[in-house]
Structures are given as C-alpha cells and as structure tokens.
C-alpha cells in the first residue's frame, strides 16, 4: 500500500524552531497555551511522497486506511472530459483539477500528539499533490462547481494582499 507514508526523519523539534517566545516561559505556559504554535515540518524535497487525492461528495464517518486503489480507482472509467465511478451503488462523475499556479497541495498529518497542551504541536507534510480529483453525485463536473470556484481564491487573495503602488 503506497499512499500516505509517514517519514521517519522528523526533526527533534522541541525547541529548535520559531516558537521561541513561548518556549522560554514554561512557567506561564499553562496560561499562554493560547499562544502556542503548530509547527509544520517539511521533509527535504527529495523525500516528499506523492499520493492521489479524491474529494468525495459524501461524508464517510471514518478516518483510516481503506483499499482505495482496489475498490475505487480500479473501477473508475476515464472518458474524454469526465470520469465516472460507481461508489456504493451511486454514480459519481468527476474530473481532475489542478492546484493554482504557484501552489502545491499538501497533506498535513499530526503524528505525535503532545501529551499535554503545554507542548507545541507539530504537523508534518506527509504527501503532496499537484492535482486532485473531485467527484459530484450524478451532476457532470462544470465550472460552477464550488471546488473550481475555490481555486480562484489565491488570485483574489493576491489582489487583496499584494503590495500597493505608491
């Protein structure tokens, strides 16, 4: 099983990164856990795993391993402009959508939860993706799909946050 592979070279992070001001006040830590940070560990580029990502039009009340390749990907039909698959007896229609230019898809995973809320948390980039496949229930994918719209956000955000001319 490929998929999400946890990388073993997590840095010993206890105090090495940017959350310094929270680190050195351990006595007030309890009160200021509000201020704690969540570090994002990014493995070196060569060690970034790729994993296929699908957005499904249903809530699956479970998180954990699943035989996605065997029972989902393997039965997907790939036609010219849309993919179809039968999932639990319902027809899904989907398409691939790319991340906006200058953006990368990341799957973040929290591997070691701190035992207390006084420790900073760390999440790790466990896999990356350039495109994802989203699935509609019966409706053919089109440009008004919410996820397609959402991919416009970075460009709009750039207008809102980019530097203004003097």
């Amino acid at each position: 099983m490929g998929g999400v592979v946890s990388l073993s070279n997590t840095r010993k992070t206890a105090g090495t990164t940017s959350g310094v001001e929270e680190e050195n006040t351990s006595c007030c830590k309890k009160m200021s856990c509000n201020a704690s940070v969540i570090r994002v560990h990014v493995p070196p580029e060569g060690q970034l795993q790729r994993a296929p990502v699908h957005l499904l039009p249903c809530e699956i009340e479970h998180s954990g391993s699943a035989q996605v390749s065997q029972y989902f990907t393997a039965t997907t039909k790939d036609r010219k402009c849309e993919k179809t698959v039968s999932f639990r007896g319902r027809e899904l229609k989907g398409q691939e959508i790319s991340c906006p230019q200058g953006y990368t898809g990341l799957v973040l995973k929290e591997t070691n939860k701190p035992g207390s809320d006084q420790e900073d948390r760390t999440v790790k980039v466990s896999s990356v993706f350039d495109k994802l496949t989203y699935w509609n229930l019966e409706t053919p994918p089109n440009s008004d799909d919410m996820i397609v719209m959402a991919m416009d956000w970075p460009e709009l955000a750039d207008a809102i946050h980019g530097p203004v001319q003097d």
């Binding site: 499904l56 809530e59 946050h161």
Partner: peptide
Amino acid sequence: AFEEDFHSWFVGQTVQRDGRLLFVTPMD
C-alpha cells in the same frame, strides 16, 4: 477553510472524514 457539507477525502490508501480543503495564501 473551503468547506461543503457532506464531503470526505481519499488520500492515497486512506479515507479522511474531514472533507475541508484549507487554503494557505500570502497575506499582507
């Protein structure tokens, strides 16, 4: 967070119940 009702993810060979997609964009 971009969020629609009733969505979940397949990531590799796992299912992830939380169907949100987070955007991290540069901010002024």
